[in-house]
Amino acid sequence: MKIGNVELKNKVFLSPMAGVTDLPFRLICKEQNCGMLYTEMINGKALCYDDENTKKMLKIEDEEHPVAVQIFGSDPEFMGRAAEIMNAYPNEILDINMGCPAPKVVKNGDGSALMRNPKLAEEVLKSVVKNSTKPVTLKIRKGWDDNSVNAVEIAKIAEASGISALAIHGRTREQYYSGKADWDIIAEIKNAINIPVIGNGDVFTVEDARNMLDKTGCDAIMIGRGAQGNPWIFKRINHYMETGEILPEPTLEEKINTAVKHLNLAVREHGEYVAVREMRKHIAWYLKGLKGSAKVRDEINKITSYEEVVSRLNEYMEDALTLV
Score class of each variant (00 low, 15 high):
275 A>K: 06
157 I>R: 12
2 K>A: 09
91 N>K: 04
307 E>M: 13
144 W>A: 00
82 A>W: 02
194 N>A: 15
113 A>Q: 02
136 V>N: 05
224 G>Q: 11
274 V>R: 15
1 M>Q: 11
48 C>E: 05
39 T>N: 03
176 Y>Q: 12
316 Y>D: 06
53 N>M: 14
231 P>V: 08
319 D>F: 14
50 D>K: 13
39 T>I: 03
159 E>L: 09
276 V>Y: 09
266 A>D: 07
195 I>T: 11
275 A>T: 10
118 P>E: 01
28 I>K: 05
136 V>I: 07
74 S>W: 01
301 N>R: 09
148 S>N: 12
87 N>I: 06
2 K>F: 14
92 E>S: 10
151 A>H: 05
246 I>C: 10
190 K>Y: 07
120 L>N: 15
4 G>P: 08
23 L>G: 01
170 G>W: 00
2 K>G: 05
266 A>I: 05
123 E>M: 12
38 Y>V: 06
234 F>C: 02
232 W>R: 08
36 M>P: 13
235 K>G: 05
33 N>M: 14
193 I>P: 06
294 A>N: 14
246 I>R: 13
65 H>P: 02
104 K>W: 10
199 G>F: 06
95 D>S: 07
265 L>C: 01
129 V>E: 08
274 V>W: 15
101 P>T: 07
137 T>D: 11
65 H>S: 15
229 G>M: 08
97 N>Q: 08
144 W>K: 00
191 N>H: 14
298 D>F: 14
324 V>D: 11
229 G>C: 09
267 V>H: 03
5 N>C: 08
309 V>C: 04
146 D>P: 07
204 F>V: 15
225 R>C: 07
301 N>L: 10
312 R>A: 11
62 D>P: 14
309 V>M: 02
133 T>G: 14
